[in-house]
Design a protein around this nucleic acid. Sequence first.
RNA 1: GCGCCAGUAGCUCAGCUGGAUAGAGCGGCAGCCUUCUAAGCUGCGGGUCGGAGGUUCGAGUCCUCCCUGGCGCGCCA
Length: 557
Amino acid sequence: MAQEQIRAALEAVAVQLGATAPVVVELETPRDKGHGDLSTNLAMQLAKPLRSAPRKIAEQIVAALRLGPDLVEAVEIAGPGFINFRLAPGQLNETVRTILAEGAEYGRQRVAQPLRVNVEFVSANPTGPLHVAHGRGAALGDCVASLLAWLGHEVTREFYVNDAGVQINRLGESLWARVQERAGREAAIPEQGYHGAYLLELAERLVGERGAGFADQPAATGVTACRDYAVAALKAEQRADLEAFRVRFDVFFDESRLYQTAPAGSADARSPIDRALAELEGHGALFEEEGALWLRTTAHGDDKDRVLRKSDGTYTYFLPDIAYHQDKAARGFDRSIDVWGADHHGYVPRMRAAMLALGHGDAFFAAIIVQLVTVLRGGEEVKMSKRAGDFITLRELVDEVGVDAARYFFLMRRSESPFAFDVDLATRQTDENPVFYVQMAHARMSGIFRVGGVDAGTVRAEGADIAALPEAMEADLVKTLGRFPLVVRRAAEALEPHRVTTYLEELARAAHLWYHHCHVLGEPAPVERARLALARATQIVLANGLSLLGLGAPERM
RNA sequence: GCGCCAGUAGCUCAGCUGGAUAGAGCGGCAGCCUUCUAAGCUGCGGGUCGGAGGUUCGAGUCCUCCCUGGCGCGCCA
């Protein structure tokens, strides 16, 4: 790629001028087309270390640069010391040739050091159906995982199941209460229990399967049976909903595993919890006070130290969480990226502190915080209350707007921004709806091949002179296409899928513009040939971008 | 009271990890269909980047303080 060649040349010249060896050359595409195709602020960066004026350094750099005329057409110094490069027209052909040659692989790359990355997301308690906020986390986690995979990292999608603890018992008690109600007895849903209508349905099913006598057993065994039944049923339902949302997990990790010891004869029979405690002890991170066992998280930036084992001898939820992350490290992951809801953001500092206390590097743990989702229908916010079991489920949303629109909408905003999901907009089949706008651009490219009777897969760049095409917007389109790999890389590094949707909308705009002004079929042979190649390249990049987001690329709409 | 996130055009939001004259969509106004999808395209208006200081060649972006909104601050999960 032209960019890498220029970067390498600049690095060499910088060292030659006396810059200390590892020079990081920033090369960006300027906003203003008048500033060329690529631009670097290198001279300004070197002004201080070299104790010289930026423009003077820029002149020295330009004088020493040796770039072939087939690569760069012009080099200019501008403003306070920018060096602007205008690429040779032949580079347009090079870009299209690369896209057509790589096809569905275009945009995928191979980082120098691939890592094993665990992306943990959704991780909803099996105490109810998934709701819209889970959908946002699901789309986001899935796409972050895809982005990292596109860079060449080895990615595992993981769902942590809180199948132990107080909430699960309350679920069992809640279902048992519904079963009792059904049998005509007085029964109350426990304090902080689950009131949703879905437990009524579960009670119906449970009694149907086990017989009317089920309600007559002692409460102790009844609650246990209800608990196991509800957890199994809700887990299955959640997985089915995710599957319908095109999210597939590699691993469902049960919290209960953390309490289990290894089979006799294992090298280390301790449970993950006990092992984590021992490791924290080994790092000198624990202390006892007032009968409780504490982790000194303040040593790593937390506000206050945190209790791991209460004075009554039971563990806080924090310890299994630490053990879980330690288990990820033990399974060989270099990074753990956790997608959490906004209501958990307060736990980020303590988890980071725990990981640092265990000797992990700063890069091991990262949390992506997903802000709240509200739903707009008819311009009005739909009221939701999780406590009352009154909320819009992911399933309902997907049924209403479709998988493509739901995924796209969840991905198109930065995760830290609160998001109002406008279901009317998502179902609208007009240009106001960005997902239709982008998919339509792909359908239009496909339409050219369909109408022309051309098999898109057979289009080749060889002999197609894109650089000779008459309209300026054609070169702009190619340059936009050429930015795709960089967009993927930046989005992956920042863990921000919305950069891809923003880019796709920009690309779609360029594609619609071009489609409208530049006719393909029936043009003079050289023009038709070049434009078929350009349409094919555009179709490929749109399809790759949509596929990265987990969306379909329709041939017609 | 403390912490985290947000505050950019009438509305919804981008802004490439500090770059050049802050962008897009929608809405508003004015245009464009014998041509591969008008589900589209073109043009015009529209801004004290919440406020005040600071850092430097250069700040929407980094630091400090303040204002507004959301979320969170337990030996609960």
